[in-house]
Write a protein that binds this DNA or RNA. Sequence first.
RNA 1: GGAGAGGUGGCCGAGUGGUCGAAGGCGUCCGCCUGCUAAGCGGAUGUGGGGUCUAAAGCCUCACCCAGGGUUCGAAUCCCUGCCUCUCCGCCA
Length: 437
Amino acid sequence: MLDIRRILSDTDVFRKALMDRNQKNIPFEAILNDERALSALRKNWEGLREKRNRLAEDIGKKKRLGEDSSSLMEESRLVNAEISRIEQDLSKMEAGVREQLLLIPNIPHPSVPVGPDEHSNKEVHRSGVPRTFSFEPLPHWDIGTRLGILDFDRAAVLSGSRFSVLSGDGARLERALVAFMMDEHAGFQKKRRSGKPYTEVSIPFLVRPEMMEGTGQFPKFREESFLIPDDNLVLIPTAEVPVTNLNRDSILDEADLPVKYVASSTCFRREAGAAGKDTRGLIRQHQFLKVELVWLTRPESSYEDLEELTGDAEAVLEKLGLPYRRIVLCTGDLGFSSAKTYDLEVWMPSQGVYREISSCSNFEDFQARRAAIRYRPKEGGKPRLVHTMNGSGVAVGRTIAAILENFQEEDGSVLLPEPLRAYMGGQERLSPPKKQR
RNA sequence: GGAGAGGUGGCCGAGUGGUCGAAGGCGUCCGCCUGCUAAGCGGAUGUGGGGUCUAAAGCCUCACCCAGGGUUCGAAUCCCUGCCUCUCCGCCA
């Protein structure tokens, strides 16, 4: 949510920034008019409350002295009638303004390239060299099926399309990847390049709808979520939701910033707008595992911190030996809550393209304002909103796909990246099942 | 799921209709004091909005004692609903 007072004072700046995001139809004038009318009405209301408080106080005094107070009580009743009338309008208007504000996306940081869609995204750098194959590389779903570790047909029987069953080495590889990534970030395997290690958290996968509003998924993207209406809960689309909201409605000490969390979670997405896209394989599933990094940090350092967070995600891909590139999303491709986003894209040999495997964003105070996450400055004074950031570190299902494709051999086997072998009991390779009988 | 108890400031805890944004304690901060430290003494210390002011400070004011409704001239206090916590019983991976 944007700051209504800043919109009032810098309307043109906001209007321009949102034009860059293809948000041409935001009814600024209407919202600002409502807000002005609202504050006038609020003043009126406060004046009447003051009057009522005075009357109640005087009545109390008179009663104690045994004097007659019936005329004051009558006056107070009249004031109250007026207050009730105003309160009806007030709550209607407040809800209206809030509803509008909740639908306005964050404004992009000045360093974000301006452009209408993903074609204007800019590559920042590449790491690793895509391997040259002496044979035609297979897509991961064929490799997985041949290895007997990946089964979409049985998943469809259980749950329908966009689900998968991993078995044997596949299930084990998934578990190994989660453990490897968590250990990387939680700092058991390496020294941190700076600052403190991540605090590992294990969080609920079902949350109240308010949490979804706190991080920006609701109200705008409700149809993207799996809802459990009987219990008023929502299946999380990412660990970002519960982890960011861990500190909602609270005031942190500046000395404790940045707060850094890492969590692994199953993520649930309806993929309602993705009909026809990525219908095969592990790329776009209703349910997938992801390791997520979340920072709450000081506004002054958040852009520096975004570099470090993104670097933490990149380190995972580097250690696994997967070729990838980092791109910065342009204004037209930026997510709703984000002010700046780097995507990490991993090389997928069967398609000859880079595919998103991590998305690292700075939300500035957009989520913090919704979730009321603040900190007390060292030098004292008023609490200030933190900046929130998060990034995948990284998506597990897509990593499995990337490993299968990048490290496949002509004989159908797949060589495991060195760091994973310890997590696989020393196993070096995924091999096709021996022919039975 | 059934029965009961309860949710008050950073923390503990008093407060059952008016003078309560809220006693007292702890913690924190600022002074004072004692070679240092501890103790002691004095003071300050919630959040969000509006106003006053050149600005800060200060002052005035509105809201907030889990949330939302209600009763009343007046609600932390009474009533209803929801959420949460605790105890006992039942059930259960």
